[in-house]
Design a protein around this nucleic acid. Sequence first.
RNA 1: GGCGGCGUACCCAAGUGGCUAAGGGAGAGGUCUGCAAAACCUUUAUUCAGCGGUUCAAAUCCGCUCGCCGCCUCCA
Length: 484
Amino acid sequence: MKLYNTLTGKKEEFIPVEPGRVKMYACGVTVYDHCHIGHARSAIVFDVIRRYLKYKGFDITYIRNFTDIDDKIINKAQEEGIPWHDVARKYTDSYYHDMDRLGVGRADVEPKATEHIPEIIAIVKGLIDKGYAYEIQGDVYFDVGRFPGYGKLSKRDVDEMVAGARVAVDQKKRNPMDFSLWKASKQGEPSWESPWGPGRPGWHIECSAMSLKHLGETFDIHGGGADLIFPHHENEIAQTEAYTGKPFVQYWLHNGFITVDKEKMSKSLGNFFTIQEILNVFDAEVVRFFLLATHYRSPIEFSDEQLREAEKSIDRYYATALRIRSFLGQDHSPDNPGPDAQMLRNMINQFSDKFQSAMDDDFNTALAMGVLFELVRAVNKYMDNRPSGTQAVELVTHAQKVLDKSGGVLHMFKRTPEEWHQALLAVKQIDLTKEEIEAKIIARQKAREEKDWSMADGIRNELETKGIILEDTKESTIWKVKIT
RNA sequence: GGCGGCGUACCCAAGUGGCUAAGGGAGAGGUCUGCAAAACCUUUAUUCAGCGGUUCAAAUCCGCUCGCCGCCUCCA
């Protein structure tokens, strides 16, 4: 298995520190607002990576943190006139609500910064003792000049950064690049007692404290959005390695951004769509598909059109799933494996290898989904010839199994076709119940038996104007939500 | 200014040295169907932003040019 390591700038063979075990940490969110689709991307990408590593048989420990104390949370608390911890709780709840809907699994440990204050203080103290940090008027800064590897992740040179610095230099710092480990609290701000007086953690130290506590000094994978490379992850490396004297992380993984009109979606530009907004119009699985149809490091342009295409693809999958089920439920007395049996058998045999080699290549979910849809087409083609008999049943059952298994890794295609259409009924706000539709189908069926085509077509057209498509098969008539 | 990345068909998107350049959407034609829809088949890139180079061989490596984006400030 190869993965692209930001630290080396290359795809590398994945060798965990401890054979068979993977320790992974992904930066979560600062809980000061609702999550947007960019947060969803990061969460889903690492969710899939986690699931795939598990599928490969690794014993994985996955940590994803919450930053629950921060300037933005304090500001939000002032804006809303509520205590800061209520802000944190409110948006933590919102995060869970969104992620549960998107099928993002809970991490093994989901630590919060405020639950690790003693650990944070211990590290800050240790860094001061070792001469890597200094205290001024209750603030503690990391002395970047003392850490020779500074810039190795983001490929930056400290002197050049200082020369090009766009941010006002804090006079208290020895070096403009030095960053906060501990911040003295102002009057009325949340604070914790520390050897440097009342204060709160700096911006990066929490991740060091939490990963150290839950994963140890050196672990395998650390992930997050590409915007965290600098300064967040660079600073994490500096403070953690300075503190432990050991390598911090083996593989750094960073997901690309979501763009709108080619520009990065971000809070400051205001060009973002919250997860809730999108889930009002599209099913969660559509969002998941949309995000996984592109390699995780590439930018994704956000658009309704792309989401609609994702919706069509999923619909195609469930249409096939329905066909498979009805095929398997049929009478299979004549033994006729059909002309494409060998072709399908070959496809199935190759499928798992192709799927895995796609995923093994830096988690290429886009390619993996291509492989999946190749098999979908092959199964449809096979069933088109109306094969029958035990061999045919065995083949189609096998195809269904391998599709299910790889769908499980992506955490998609888990529902029944009925559940999918039921979900679409809700999300498209179609003013018909399943029962009403089924009653119409029965009425139409009667008309069809009487060869009253105008009546039958009238019912079909009536449903179509309401967004429901009818499809007549040999066995029955099925309904689907119209996708445009 | 420094560093990094991207540019593949009408659209989205895999492919990073060598079999016919995946897959999806859209369009066109066909099979099937009471008619449809779905499904399937055929079709849409002798070509991968442009130019030059390396090589027996390049979309893939190197150089230059053009265009776009990201990070350098909180940011997934």
